[in-house]
């Protein structure tokens, strides 16, 4: 089996990307963002070209441009998030990252998550960020970069951080390469777990509404399995039976013959949406986790309320500074009073 990408090429591209990111990171004097982006984009483009070429060579048809476009946008905006000196812009760029990630989700047919992400991140979390930036920002209103606070303008130890980051990337990619070869897609897993088969009443109702299930006909139910707990038995009692090709088996009214409704003949309404599937996944397989997630959110809410209400005292040094400032101001005031007693009331 041919490799998807030559490891040396990948590592080389990693180095190139690292240089790009390093150059793009904010700095005291030189603003090298454009150059950094160019280098990084070149690395990414080379990477994508290699990947796409391999895909074409494997006979998979034309490359899926949606993926490449969304990826490029997501990565560029992610780079902008970490390089933009203004937090508010970084947050805005982060929204773009979220949106392009949603595009990637859509390519993966995870529609529910895509929209949930836009709502939760773009709608809720990022708005919170905006508020906090506004609440806690001491930055000036001028546009000039020089006027911004020093800690926003200068990144901290960019070389070490970039090196560490891309080392992690190279190692992670190598692990993916080494580890995933034993991981195979398992179609059977999908078939047996198909929610279709687990909701016989809804299937029957839909089929009747579509006229595909005549009066008196019933879905063939799975035989009862002895030995399970009462819940298992009850659930199994509702299950319809699929034949080997995945078609539904329907029992005639007299109960003698069984016919098969092939999957391609199913009405559109019978097909489950992504949201439904995720719902099944959550409710059926992770009910406890959902409860815990609810508790986490509740706790987070309570914690946020408590923290936000807390009266914070300045620490000693800050207090001293504040006092000195106050004294200096009052002395100035008194001086002014002394010199110009008549105008003292203006303060």
């Amino acid at each position: 089996m041919d490799t998807l990408i030559n490891p040396f090429l990948f590592y080389g591209l990693c180095v190139l990307g690292a240089v790009g990111v390093l150059v793009a990171l904010p700095r005291q004097k030189i603003a090298g963002f454009a150059i950094g982006v160019l280098i990084g984009a070149a690395a990414l483009a080379a990477f994508f070209v290699v990947l796409g070429r391999q895909a074409v060579k494997d006979g998979a048809g034309l490359p899926n441009f949606h993926f490449y476009i969304f990826s490029a946008v997501a990565l560029f905006s992610a780079l902008r998030v970490i390089t933009h000196p203004r937090p508010i812009y970084a947050a805005l760029w982060f929204i773009l990252t979220i949106v392009s990630s949603c595009g990637l989700y859509l390519v993966l047919q995870a529609e529910f998550l895509a929209f949930a992400l836009v709502i939760v991140y773009g709608g809720a979390i990022l708005i919170t960020y905006m508020f906090v930036i506004m609440l806690a920002s001491d930055g000036p209103s001028e546009d000039a970069v020089e006027a911004m606070t020093e800690y926003d303008r200068v990144s901290r130890e960019p070389v070490i951080a970039t090196f560490a980051g891309f080392l992690v990337l190279a190692v992670l990619a190598s692990f993916m390469a080494g580890g995933a070869s034993t991981l195979k897609a398992n179609p059977r897993m999908a078939a047996t777990d198909d929610p279709m088969a687990q909701m016989a009443p809804k299937v029957e109702k839909t089929l009747r509404e579509a006229g595909l299930l005549a009066e008196g006909e019933k879905l063939v139910k799975r035989p009862k399995i002895e030995g399970g707990g009462p819940e298992v038995k009850q659930q199994l009692a509702l299950d319809a039976t699929l034949d080997e090709t995945g078609g539904l088996q329907i029992l005639s009214a007299d109960g003698r013959t069984v016919r098969t409704l092939a999957e391609k003949d199913w009405p559109e309404a019978l097909r489950l949406s992504d949201a439904q599937r995720v719902g099944f996944e959550l409710i059926e397989r992770n009910p406890g986790a959902i409860e815990i997630a609810g508790v986490i959110l509740l706790m987070a809410m309570l914690g946020a309320v408590v923290l936000a209400r807390k009266k914070v005292e300045l620490d000693e040094q800050a207090k001293l500074e504040a006092m000195a400032r106050a004294r200096a101001e009052s002395e100035l005031g008194r001086e002014a009073e002394f010199v110009q007693p008549a105008t003292g009331g203006d303060n």
Binding site: L4, G17, V21, L25, L44, F47, L51, G52, A55, V56, D58, A60, G61, L62, P63, N64, F67, S71, A74, L75, A78, L79, V81, I82, P87, A90, A91, T97, L104, V107, L108, Y129, V132, I133, A136, T149, Y151, D152, V154, S155, R156, E157, P158, I160, A161, T162, A164, G165, F166, V168, L169, L172, A173, M176, A177, A180
Partner: peptide, 30 residues
């Protein structure tokens, strides 16, 4: 034409960008 590795690579790069950002930026919000 899109393999799992495509996604994992994009995910990895994005993760690393986040990591670098976390390490280099000094603004708590960022």
């Amino acid at each position: 034409g899109i393999t799992l590795f495509h996604y994992l690579a994009v995910s990895g790069i994005m993760f690393v960008l986040g990591l670098i950002g976390f390490l280099t930026r000094r603004n708590l919000i960022v």
